[in-house]
Design a binder for these strands. Sequence first.
DNA 1: ACCGTTATTGGACGAACGCGCAACAGAATT
DNA 2: AATTCTGTTGCGCGTTCGTCCAATAACGGT
Lengths: 208, 208
Amino acid sequence: MARMSPDERSTAILDATLAVARRKGLGATTVRDVAAEMGTSSGLIHHYFDSMDHVLANAFERAAGQDLSDARGAVEQSSDSIARIAAFVASYSPGDDSTMQLWLDAWSEAARRPELQAVSKRLNFEWHSMLVEIIRDGVSANVFKCPDPIASAWRILSVLDGMALQRVAHGEVVDRADASVWMATAATLELDVSANRLVDAIGARAGA
Amino acid sequence: MARMSPDERSTAILDATLAVARRKGLGATTVRDVAAEMGTSSGLIHHYFDSMDHVLANAFERAAGQDLSDARGAVEQSSDSIARIAAFVASYSPGDDSTMQLWLDAWSEAARRPELQAVSKRLNFEWHSMLVEIIRDGVSANVFKCPDPIASAWRILSVLDGMALQRVAHGEVVDRADASVWMATAATLELDVSANRLVDAIGARAGA
DNA sequence: ACCGTTATTGGACGAACGCGCAACAGAATT
DNA sequence: AATTCTGTTGCGCGTTCGTCCAATAACGGT
């Protein structure tokens, strides 16, 4: 196969890994699968990565990290706290569910793949602390009322995860519009936002 | 090894499978693991089940169904609505997290394995509708105030899942006592229970 | 045009996998 | 006590896994 620079080849390997993982699942992705996807030999993968665990961890990090920085961008562009929460929720449950499937795979595999666990744990924390910051800003601005931002962030995050989980694992089992309202309601309860400002803001974003 | 009747042996195989699956994950459980767990030969498993897939599917159904009926029993024994919610939460996140690993595996594999998806979806619904019923009873008895029990049940369930998930997938990352309080707080917010009656009730159960 | 560097190959290695089968052993039947 | 039935054993089969390594081929500097 065409000779590539180390950087090009590294990302090519990770992209091929993600393509296979989205199809077969992260845990069921083998070295030979990745090589076949690229059209190269399998030995090439180990020339760039010490172990298959590293390959999977880096591939997951690439996919999930992309979503995370996308969310950061969307949140930073938002002017007020309400819009920021709405942007956060919208980023978390995008139209494409394939990344959520990777998260489910990662959580399932984490207990027995140390590298993958470390990445999953770290990214999970970054999502959480991003939400904590949004909440604290809102509290400072007197838009939110929240006695325990850390706890509230975990609960809101859990609801987002839970809704996405139902859709990905069990199919279209909860209506998408319903789920959107329910997530917004969770945030409203936690942050004591008057009326339905959050529901409206998130609904408007979801409809767009 | 001791000779058993077909029924005894079948359940012994499923129990051994679960013991291993709780430790290593459903997908990583092998025929030899199960045999070693029972202290028998590996050939014995194939004398009772056509394939390893059948073993795993039956094992998951047995474990998840068992937990569900245990929860039903604990809830039915509780006299008032507060105690019933506390029993529900306690059943869902017992001292032993091992069942949660099975759920993570099931959710991860559900989209790719129809048979497993059906079981996972059905049991997930039963947990949900059980909680809906508890909430409706509490509303009728004027203990809870809840405009949308179905939505609230999904959100409470999501929080329970989310907390268990963090512990199983990422290790002791959130303090156990904190998680217990946070789950109780979620229920308090959703059901508009005065003061901290739920936090106390669930905390008392968790401490026991 | 040469040569050193290195990306890439392709197969070997041992371990572990699901599965199948002939032989064995213990309970039930006669 | 002899015989039948069947739960159980122990190992072998073919495959696939992650990993490793000597050989090869393509690129860049001189």
